[in-house]
Each structure stands twice: as structure tokens, then as C-alpha cells.
């Protein structure tokens, strides 16, 4: 299914093998006030790290999801990011180097999206860190309701909730909360968030040079993850209203929030869908969530956890409480998210 004839790849690249490194160097050049890029260790670190006495947040995963994670390094969010090759988990050496670079003596939290490779590599890194006397707590993100039967799968994937979790846990750490509290808050965000994604097109990793799957004209993939992997099922393209309905139904039925619950609505672009469509989709989703008895009181609309240039969108709904809402509102200053600072 991946061998369709494809047009030649047109991307802003030099050598495709250098794409990740050159992009990170560019990120650092643009935001040297916020972060630095250690090319030897292949990590992105907050400019003022380590912050003494502050719990440090480290995340990482394959590249191709920008601005996740490097774009979320800065005040009020991540202390370090470990970017792997495109759609490939980073290696334990990177995670250990990041952990040591940001450890301010108050403990380090690893934020791990639930993918087999990410989980294994972070596990090996946490063991290495423990050997060096650094306390590491790991928080697993697994919010994707498209993966239904976890007995027969690797479990739900970590997708949109990762962004919300990194923001909220980052605010807690910035405010001086201890490692147990930051970890508990992060787990609360994951427990109360659900996501579902839809692809309108495939995407082309630079090193592969051709699309990851072949999506015929007039069809959409429902229940996609963030690595260009095909979704759960394929259907005819339909209206934004109908697609919003599929996303809302999948998320709301699984979240099972009480009637009247206040929620944060995150409508995320997969990389190739313009803001015009994302806001159109948001309008539909906001209306349908209200019809379903929920009250959207916060939102985030834009491309924050992507699959290269894939056209498509995901919906994440987070059930809020006062504490989570206030941590969401707290100042943040990173390349990709900035308010109040």
C-alpha cells in the first residue's frame, strides 16, 4: 500500500540525512534567548538550565511533530527535549544527557508518549539516571481513543494531550511544586484528556522521500496517530460538520465527563491544514461539544503536534478543574506557546 507512484519530493532540505540537526540548529538560532541546542548530545535545553530547586521536565520522541517537543522548551514548560530521527524514538544517551543537563536537585520528570520505542528507551535512560543518583519520575501519555482494545495492542498512543500536559505540568514546576505534585498533576491531565485524529493526506519523511501511505482522492483515514501510520479505518471524505461529529463522538463517549463539565478544547492541525480550516472545524466542534452537554471554557487552535506536512486534524478534550485551568492560564514563554510572559 506504500508503493504508489509519487511525485518527486519537494522540500526545503540540504542532505535529507541532516534534516533534524539542521532544523534544531535553526530553532536555536531563532530562539537563543529561550533555549540552546547541544549538537553533540542531540538535545534542546532551556537557556537557563539547570534551574536550582525546580523540578525539571524532560520529554522527547521522534522528530516530525514540530513544534513538539523542542518548540515547547522554555519558561513554564519543558526544560529539555530529546529529538529522535523523524518518527523514531531518541536513544537513551540523549535522555540521560538531557536529564543531567536540567537536574536542579529537585527531581526530573520524564514525559513519555506511549509508543513501544519511546517507552523502552526512556526506561533504559531512567535506569541509567538512577545509577547516577538522579530521581526520575516517568509519566506516560496515552490519550488516543482510536486505539480501543489495549489487551491486543501496544496500548493507547500519546497524542494531543502531550501538549496540554507539558504546559500544565510545566506551570506547576515553575511555581515551585515538588516532584510528587508535578507528577500527580501530569497524570491527572492524562487521565482526563482524550484525543482522536483524522488524516486528509499522507506525509513524506525526508529520508524516505515518498509518502508513507497512499490515500486515494476522496478518502480520509480515521483514527490516525502522529507518525503517518495508517488509521483504524478509511472512509469517504465528508463535510467538516460530519468529520467533527466523528471526532466529538469518539472523544466524548470515551471521556465520560459529567454533564456541564468545563473543558479545554484543543483543535490541532497535523501540519498541512491551514488555520482557515482549523477555525472552521473549531466552530463545528465547539457547537457540538455544547450540544453534548460540555462547556468549553479554554481552547487551543493551531498546529502543535504534527505529522510533517500531513493534512488533517486531531481533537483533544481535557476535562478541567480550577487548578488545571489556572495552571493552563499561567505564564509560558517558549518558541511555540507564549502568553502572560
Amino acid at each position: 500500500m506504500a508503493t504508489a507512484t509519487t511525485p518527486a519530493m519537494k522540500k526545503f532540505l540540504n542532505d535529507p540525512a541532516d534534516a533534524v540537526r539542521e532544523s534544531l540548529a535553526g530553532l536555536a538560532a531563532a530562539h537563543h534567548d529561550l533555549l540552546r541546542y547541544d549538537a553533540d548530545a542531540q538535545i534542546v535545553v532551556r537557556a537557563d538550565a539547570p534551574v536550582a530547586g525546580k523540578v525539571a521536565l524532560v520529554s522527547g520522541g521522534g522528530s516530525g511533530h514540530e513544534p513538539l517537543h523542542g518548540g515547547f522548551v522554555g519558561r513554564g514548560m519543558l526544560d529539555a527535549a530529546c529529538p529522535g530521527e523523524v518518527f523514531t524514538s531518541p536513544v537513551p544517551d540523549q535522555m540521560l544527557a538531557a536529564t543531567k543537563a536540567v537536574d536542579g536537585g529537585a527531581g526530573v520528570v520524564h514525559i513519555v508518549k506511549n509508543y513501544t520505542g519511546d517507552v523502552m528507551n526512556f526506561k533504559l535512560a531512567a535506569e541509567d539516571a538512577a545509577d547516577e543518583g538522579i530521581t526520575v519520575e516517568s509519566v506516560l501519555v496515552d490519550d488516543d481513543v482510536a486505539v480501543q482494545d489495549s489487551l491486543y495492542t501496544a496500548g493507547r498512543r500519546g497524542v494531543g494531550a502531550t501538549v496540554l500536559l507539558e504546559k500544565i505540568a510545566g506551570a506547576a514546576a515553575e511555581s515551585g511544586d515538588d516532584v510528587q505534585r508535578v507528577t500527580a498533576l501530569a497524570r491527572r491531565v492524562n487521565a482526563r484528556a482524550r484525543s482522536f485524529g483524522v488524516a486528509l493526506s499522507s506525509c513524506t519523511p525526508p529520508a524516505a522521500g515518498k509518502p508513507m501511505f497512499d490515500l486515494p482522492e476522496g478518502e480520509v483515514e480515521l483514527g490516525i496517530g502522529i507518525h503517518g501510520e495508517p488509521g483504524r479505518r478509511r472512509e469517504r471524505m465528508s463535510s467538516a460538520r460530519e468529520l467533527a461529529g466523528v471526532m466529538v463522538e469518539a472523544v466524548v463517549s470515551d471521556l465520560q465527563a459529567p454533564p456541564g463539565a468545563q473543558v479545554l478544547t484543543f483543535v490541532n492541525g497535523m501540519g498541512g491544514t491551514p488555520q482557515l480550516e482549523l477555525y472552521l472545524l473549531y466552530g463545528e466542534i465547539d457547537r457540538q461539544l455544547r450540544e453534548a452537554g460540555l462547556e468549553p471554557v479554554r481552547n487551543l487552535v493551531g498546529s502543535y503536534i504534527t505529522s510533517l506536512e500531513m493534512a488533517g486534524a486531531s481533537l483533544t478534550v481535557l476535562e478541567l478543574d480550577d487548578e488545571l485551568a489556572s495552571l493552563w492560564d499561567a505564564p509560558v514563554h517558549t518558541p511555540a506557546l507564549r502568553w502572560g510572559a
Binding site: V91, P92, G117, N121
Partner: peptide, 12 residues
Amino acid sequence: LVSTVGGASGPL
């Protein structure tokens, strides 16, 4: 292999 492959294959 652990230090260079990444993904699941590296650790495995």
C-alpha cells in the same frame, strides 16, 4: 545498537 538505532529495535 542501543545508542544509535532508537525506536523499539534499538533497545530490543
